[in-house]
């Protein structure tokens, strides 16, 4: 029963969600919204589990003074300060929480995002080495697209933007659409396997 109950719930929920796509009549039309609401409620409770896990792991780390335990101290302090600020004085514009969010959290997030530029450069350097015919094709396409996107390319030859647009609009788009079609079939097939109980890995199914 421990394994049958989740399978039955999955089958019923999955079948109902398929039916609601084809049946516009109530109550089917409301089911997706109801399920979304249930999911939000479960998420809120799961959040308590997540925060509990975070506090447990990091407080243990501080207690046992494992390597890098001071990072855990910073994390715990950050969590407590934001939590107290939010609960105590609200999160509205002008509040202490709002100040911390906009002046600490956002700049730090932006810093992480900005690192992407350097990672793109290092990854491109490795990928664009013309070692194989495929890599050479990638290198040539990338150079053409880049020249089509920067003012310098237009200055060298005014057709570079057209070439860049053509590569993005045709070969690139065709490839992306082919991948999307495959993904759609993969999603249907995976959903069917789960709904019909053929895929049971998540239940330790053999």
């Amino acid at each position: 029963m421990k394994k049958q109950a989740p399978l039955i719930i999955t089958f019923i929920a999955g079948s109902v969600m398929i039916l609601q796509y084809f049946i516009p009549h109530r109550p089917f039309s409301d089911i997706q919204q109801i399920f979304n609401t249930w999911f939000l409620i479960i998420t809120v409770f799961a959040m308590i589990l997540g925060i509990g896990n975070l506090i447990k792991i990091h407080s243990e780390r501080v207690q046992r003074q494992r390597s890098g335990w001071w990072y855990s101290v910073v994390l715990m302090m950050g969590f407590i300060v934001m939590f107290v600020a939010g609960i105590g004085w609200g999160i509205e514009r002008g509040s202490f929480f709002y100040y911390l969010y906009w002046n600490m959290h956002i700049p730090m997030s932006s810093t992480m995002f900005a690192l992407l530029a350097f990672f793109v450069a290092s990854a491109s350097y490795r990928a664009f080495r013309a070692r194989t015919p495929d890599a050479t094709l990638l290198l040539v396409s990338a150079i053409l697209v880049m020249l089509g996107r920067v003012p310098l390319g237009n200055y060298i030859w005014d057709k570079f933007p057209l070439v860049g647009d053509w590569i993005m609009g045709y070969p690139n788009m065709a490839g992306q659409r082919a991948i999307m079609i495959g993904i759609a079939f993969g999603v249907v097939s995976t959903s069917l396997r789960i709904i019909l109980g053929i895929e049971r890995t998540y239940l330790s199914g053999k």
Partner: peptide, 14 residues
């Protein structure tokens, strides 16, 4: 670019 192997789209579901 960055990984040794990549499952493209549907291969993830397979």
């Amino acid at each position: 670019t960055a990984c040794d192997y990549t499952l493209i789209g549907e291969e993830l579901f397979a």
